[in-house]
Computed example of a mutant assay.
Amino acid sequence: MQSKSLQVTPIPTPRKNVEDELVRVNLLVPVSLRKEWKALALESDKTLTQVIIEAMTRQVSRNTQNENSKK
């Protein structure tokens, strides 16, 4: 019995200063966490969307750097 080959799609490097079309992403998070994110957004004079995009971009960049350093 042969196993199917697994195709792995590489994570793209985050692009900076590129105007991409925004798409909707729905996810469930605890109410308390959303309140923290919203408070941070208000303190930073940013939208919740901006705060999440910035945080995820940093995380992806960090993960990409860690993957590259393992090679």
Results as ranks from 00 to 15, higher is better:
28 L>M: 15
28 L>W: 14
28 L>P: 02
28 L>F: 15
28 L>Q: 15
29 V>D: 01
31 V>Q: 12
31 V>R: 15
31 V>G: 04
31 V>M: 08
31 V>W: 06
32 S>G: 09
32 S>M: 04
33 L>V: 13
33 L>F: 04
33 L>Y: 04
33 L>D: 08
33 L>T: 11
34 R>M: 13
34 R>F: 12
34 R>W: 13
35 K>R: 15
35 K>V: 07
35 K>A: 09
35 K>T: 09
35 K>C: 08
35 K>I: 07
36 E>C: 12
36 E>S: 13
36 E>N: 14
37 W>S: 03
37 W>H: 09
37 W>D: 04
37 W>F: 09
37 W>Q: 03
37 W>Y: 09
37 W>C: 10
38 K>Y: 13
38 K>L: 13
38 K>E: 14
39 A>C: 10
39 A>N: 11
39 A>T: 07
39 A>Q: 10
39 A>W: 05
39 A>I: 05
39 A>E: 04
40 L>M: 14
40 L>N: 03
40 L>H: 08
40 L>V: 05
40 L>D: 12
40 L>T: 07
40 L>P: 03
41 A>M: 07
41 A>K: 00
41 A>N: 00
41 A>F: 01
42 L>T: 13
42 L>P: 12
42 L>H: 08
43 E>D: 12
43 E>S: 15
43 E>I: 06
43 E>M: 09
43 E>Y: 06
43 E>Q: 12
44 S>Y: 14
44 S>P: 00
44 S>D: 06
44 S>W: 05
44 S>F: 01
44 S>I: 01
45 D>A: 14
45 D>G: 07
45 D>Q: 12
45 D>S: 14
46 K>Y: 03
46 K>C: 00
46 K>M: 01
46 K>N: 06
46 K>P: 04
46 K>F: 00
47 T>W: 00
47 T>E: 02
47 T>D: 03
47 T>P: 00
48 L>N: 02
48 L>C: 07
48 L>A: 05
48 L>E: 01
49 T>P: 06
49 T>Q: 13
49 T>S: 10
49 T>V: 08
50 Q>C: 01
50 Q>A: 11
50 Q>K: 09
50 Q>I: 03
50 Q>R: 11
50 Q>M: 07
51 V>C: 06
51 V>M: 04
51 V>A: 06
51 V>G: 01
52 I>Y: 10
52 I>Q: 02
52 I>W: 00
52 I>D: 02
52 I>P: 03
53 I>A: 11
53 I>K: 09
53 I>V: 14
54 E>H: 05
54 E>G: 08
54 E>F: 02
54 E>P: 06
54 E>M: 05
54 E>W: 03
55 A>D: 02
55 A>E: 03
55 A>R: 05
55 A>P: 03
55 A>W: 03
55 A>F: 11
56 M>P: 07
56 M>G: 10
56 M>I: 11
56 M>C: 13
56 M>T: 13
56 M>V: 15
56 M>A: 13
56 M>D: 08
57 T>S: 07
57 T>Q: 12
57 T>M: 09
57 T>F: 10
57 T>C: 11
57 T>D: 03
57 T>I: 09
58 R>G: 08
58 R>A: 14
